[in-house]
Each structure stands twice: as structure tokens, then as C-alpha cells.
Amino acid sequence: MNRIQQKLQEDKKLLSIYFTAGYPQINDTVSIIEDLENNGVDMIEIGLPFSDPLADGPTIQESSTQALRNGMTTEKLFQQLKDIRKTVNIPLIIMGYFNPMLQYGVEEFCKKCEEIGIDGLIIPDLPVDVYSEKYQAVFEKYKLINVFLITPQTAEERIRFIDSVSNGFIYMVSSASVTGATSGFGSDTKDYFKRISGMNLKNPQIVGFGISDKQSFKEATEYSNGAIIGSAYIKHLTKNGVEKNIDFVKTIR
């Protein structure tokens, strides 16, 4: 069983953190991951920065631009992570846009991930249709779990299709928007959480986008298995640097 699947069986609401690799400083990647695990974070999304992150709001855009300026590349990230499994046990997911993976070579990229001990990928601009037709076999060969997004506008039939192609969890985008911390969810969002929870999908759901504090974490996980925090954590990093992760985790749970 993959680390993601194992983690999802634990009886708790998972706290997952996204950060942009190479931000604030190029060599912060490993220490951020280790420190987040030590402070009780359950899963980590390592952002591979991209020049044109279409699905991201200003916070993640700016951290990506800075990371690229710092010299972050795909190869550099793999180098930084090569011994990560000597110190880190929680599931690690790489989240990035498709073009850098395509240029690296999709198979080569997947192979590298398996060697390092990456458990899954989130690629917002690789649609499930293209994935299932062209890339699923490669991902499976290297035992990578691919995670797909759904939104409040995703039709039921498509959710069922995504569920059938998924083998880890479904990334439930809280509202139709790009990434970026907002505060609190309205009743529409809660109805959507409930509706999806009532579909009895085979994959558990983890909520992302717009989670920034205890309140929004609690609301997001009422009907799901966990939540992902990105922009709010990057803002914390920008303000406090890499040392005070414990303070951030305490503001969430």
C-alpha cells in the first residue's frame, strides 16, 4: 500500500500543507518538509514552480516567480529530495503544471519520483481524459497516485468518472476560484461538501483552496478526510521565515 492510502486510513482529519519548492530560499525545501512533519503535519504537497501558474492566485504566483529567480529547476528539486526518505515518513506529493514535466519527459519524471519516494502527483492542467488515455499506465508503472480536482461545478457523472480513475483521494476545490486564502465558507460551499460526501465515492476527499485558519479547517473537514493549506502557509513563510512552523500549525489545530 502506498503511503497516501495508508495515511488516509488513520482515524483523523488530515492536515496537508502546500509550499513552493525553492521559496523563500532555494535550499529551504528539505528543512521545510522535515520541520512540518515534526510539527504534526500529515502530508505535504511540494510545489514545482512554473512561470505561468494559471490556476493560482497572487500568493502562489509570487512565490513561484521568486523560486524560479532563486534558480529552482526540476532537476534541482530532485537533487534536493534525493535523501528525503532517510528522514521523512509522511506522504509526499509533487504538485506542478504539466509543461515542465513534459519537457523533463513524463516517464523519466515518474521514474525519478519513484526512486526518491514521492507518493503522488497533482497536475492541475493535465485533464483526467488525457491522463487516462495517455499517461495512466506510466504513473501506475512507477506506483504514483495521481490526484484529480473537482469543483462545485463538476457534474455528477464526471465526478464518478474521476472517482473511477483515482486511487488515492479526490482534491475537492472549495469554491470555483484560483488559489488564495479567503476567510470562511458560505452555506453554498457547505451544501457542496455535504452533497459530495453523500455520493459515497470510493476515494476519500480532501478539501483545498481557501483554507487559512482553525475555523475554515474545521468547516472543510466536517464532511471530508482532511484539508490542504497553501497560500496561507506561504504568507506565513514570507512573514516569519522557515523556523516558526510550530506557530502556524497551532493556528490550524
Partner: peptide, 22 residues
């Protein structure tokens, strides 16, 4: 340019070796 993805389309685009759009 080299083959890659920009604005939702697979096409030729100017990019770095690492797949960042230039």
C-alpha cells in the same frame, strides 16, 4: 520554440529547457 503546453493548448512555444515559458 519547442513543443509544449501554453494556455491550454499543445503547440510550439518559446521556453527554457526546464519548461518555463520565456
Amino acid at each position: 520554440g519547442k513543443e509544449g503546453i501554453i494556455h491550454g493548448s499543445k503547440t510550439l512555444l518559446m521556453q527554457t529547457q526546464d519548461g518555463q515559458i520565456t
